[in-house]
């Protein structure tokens, strides 16, 4: 599948934003008001800013961005529509939570319920994003039970790394932020490794013979292509550029994640290193997302010469 850069940026940025927002909500529910208004506002602006940048960038790959509002209508059947609805709905409790948590409006009794609602909405939104991919039967590498958990832990881990970095900058660094980040990054490592094992082991059960139905008379190979120049289906579905580098890119993701974990551990002594850890976790997510697209083979490529899918 062709990796649209706007979609990679969207899922990475908004994932980190939702992860951070959810953690702020839970921290608020646990500890009450933010330790300072400046910290509270900065954290909320960062989280909602990342989410907004992501949502905006996701409209860049649309052919008709001015009609994007129509995407809120088909939530009964479409995960993409559900994601849009969930993303907009999340803003309501999130903004209210931000106002009371950062102390702009004194209402401490609302911090806990708003924080929990915000965290749940964040999880729902990221889950909807993952389901857009996981629900596609046409792409074996996405139609996996681990796709959604991987998206969720990536959001949590990048959010946790951001929280530690932010706390370090504001001098509110606490060891539990490191342990949380480490646990989330370790979960990412494990789930992503399991995901790669699963997609490598999944049987490539669709063949060119089955797709064309010509297997009933013999062994099929492509003889003549149906075009004079590369067409949309090949560009969008037949993207293979990164597949040959897959092994190296997988190692790169794992190395970046391990480096992020190491730096987070070191930040117990030198808190500002958490900033570098967050940057590394973010970079790891970008590479992983790019690979997520590039490694995904679409069934329709069987009509264009692929032997199995």
């Amino acid at each position: 599948m062709h990796p649209a850069y706007s979609v990679i940026l969207f899922t990475t940025a908004s994932g980190a934003g939702y992860g951070l927002l959810a953690l702020l909500g839970l921290a608020g529910a646990q500890h009450g008001q933010a330790s300072s208004t400046a910290f509270g506002i900065t954290a909320m602006v960062l989280a909602l800013g990342l989410i907004s940048v992501g949502l905006l960038s996701s409209t860049f790959h649309l052919g008709r961005p001015e009609r994007a509002w129509r995407a809120f209508s088909q939530w009964r059947s479409s995960w993409l529509s559900r994601e849009g609805v969930a993303a907009v709905l999340t803003f309501l409790p999130a903004l209210a939570f931000g106002v009371v948590w950062s102390g702009l409006y004194e209402a401490p009794q609302f911090i806990a319920p708003l924080g929990i609602i915000t965290a749940v909405m964040c999880a729902i939104t990221v889950f909807c994003t993952a389901q857009i991919y996981a629900s596609l039967k046409t792409i074996r590498a996405w139609h996996q039970s681990l796709t959604a958990p991987v998206y969720l832990v990536f959001a949590l881990a990048t959010g946790a790394a951001l929280l530690a970095a932010l706390a370090a900058v504001f001098g509110r660094f606490q060891p539990f932020q490191v342990w949380l980040g480490l646990a989330a990054l370790a979960a990412v490592l494990v789930l992503k490794a399991l995901y790669w094992r699963a997609i490598d082991a999944a049987p490539r059960s669709h063949t060119m013979e089955a797709a064309t139905g010509l297997g009933r008379i013999g062994q099929v190979s492509q003889w003549e292509v149906p075009h004079t120049a590369i067409n949309f289906v090949q560009k969008e579905m037949g993207y293979v550029v990164a597949r040959r580098h897959a092994a190296r890119l997988r190692l790169m993701v794992l190395a970046l994640l391990l480096a992020a974990m190491l730096l987070l551990l070191v930040s117990l002594k030198a808190p500002l290193l958490a900033l570098v850890a967050a940057a590394l976790a973010f970079t790891a997510t970008m590479v992983e997302r790019w690979l997520f697209f590039a490694e995904a083979q679409h069934v329709s490529t069987l009509f264009y010469g692929a032997k199995t899918a």
Binding site: R64, E236, H298
Partner: peptide
């Protein structure tokens, strides 16, 4: 008149039957 050109439908089709129109964005 309602298509936003998100191309998700083309991803969902196993037969490669849908083709995006770059000029109209649908």
């Amino acid at each position: 008149d309602m298509c936003i050109g998100c191309k998700l439908c083309s991803w969902a089709c196993p037969y490669g039957a849908r083709e995006y129109d770059e000029v109209q964005g649908v």
